[in-house]
Amino acid sequence: MGKLKLKLTFDKDCVTRPIIYELVKKYDVMTNILNANIEYGNRGNMILEIKGKDENLKLALEYFKDLRVKYEIYAEAIIWDEKRCISCGSCTAVCPTQALTMGKDDLLHFDKDKCVVCQLCINACPIRIISVEL
């Protein structure tokens, strides 16, 4: 089993195709849409996580190529130095996917799975404890 986090960019033609349905059906992958910004009949992009057998993930990428859907794979990961965090919440102001949120306990919570590595939080943290691992 493997996992990939992708940013897909579509143009007009493929926006109307049921891509997610076809992915699940043809390649038996689990999909999780983290963010989507699609105008019907126009350009769009989507941040998608797919989980499945390694060979199926490869086939899924081939499928995107065939459809001419551009994809970028997120290879980096965000590192949050939890011990030094003061839970001020400044980073949550810019996080587009709610990967960084204030919990009921008023501590900062970081949900790695929702993170799309946009890196906006790095400079938004006044204590400078968020970094990116390449």
């Binding site: 003061i86 001020c88 919440g89 400044s90 102001a93 204030m102 501590l107």
Partner: peptide
């Protein structure tokens, strides 16, 4: 609209 704090309630408590 999303709201975010800048001061730490956790440390204040």
């Amino acid at each position: 609209v999303h709201t975010a704090p800048l001061s730490s309630l956790y440390v204040a408590r």
